[in-house]
Amino acid sequence: PAPAPCNPSHFMKGAIIQLATGELKRVEDLQTQDFVRSAEVSGGLKIDSSLVMDIRGSQQRPGLVSLHFTVGEQQSKVTIDVPPEHPFFVFGQGWSSCSPERTAQLYGLACHHLQVGDMCVSITLQQQP
């Protein structure tokens, strides 16, 4: 039997998401501009582009996937371990995961297949001048 995954319900199809503008949207209706505008008005948060460099099974945590990113203008290398069904938002494409089938099963959220070369939306703290 599969272990019960941690299912953040904000990825469930139909989940209501509040943008920084105050606007409410369903998670499946979000578009790139919603993230970009939200970051602009949020004050303190900044959208970064995180390029997927490599996708492989996690060495430390079986069942998880290690995603290797280069983040932002500095192209810092960051690796995170996530369940294969975890959705990421790809610029100009929308929700994408390593296992769109599992994402559909667990969340009902339609996803593209996340691939090396995809540019994901991530957030970071805005640099104070």
């Binding site: 904000h10 209501i16 939200s38 983040v71 810092s76 995170i80």
Partner: peptide, 19 residues
């Protein structure tokens, strides 16, 4: 109906990490 903030949907990736 629960409402979730937009920033809970995308990863917080700290670009200041060296490497």
């Amino acid at each position: 109906v629960p409402v979730f903030p937009w920033h809970s949907l995308v990863p917080f990736l700290e670009p200041s990490q060296s490497g």
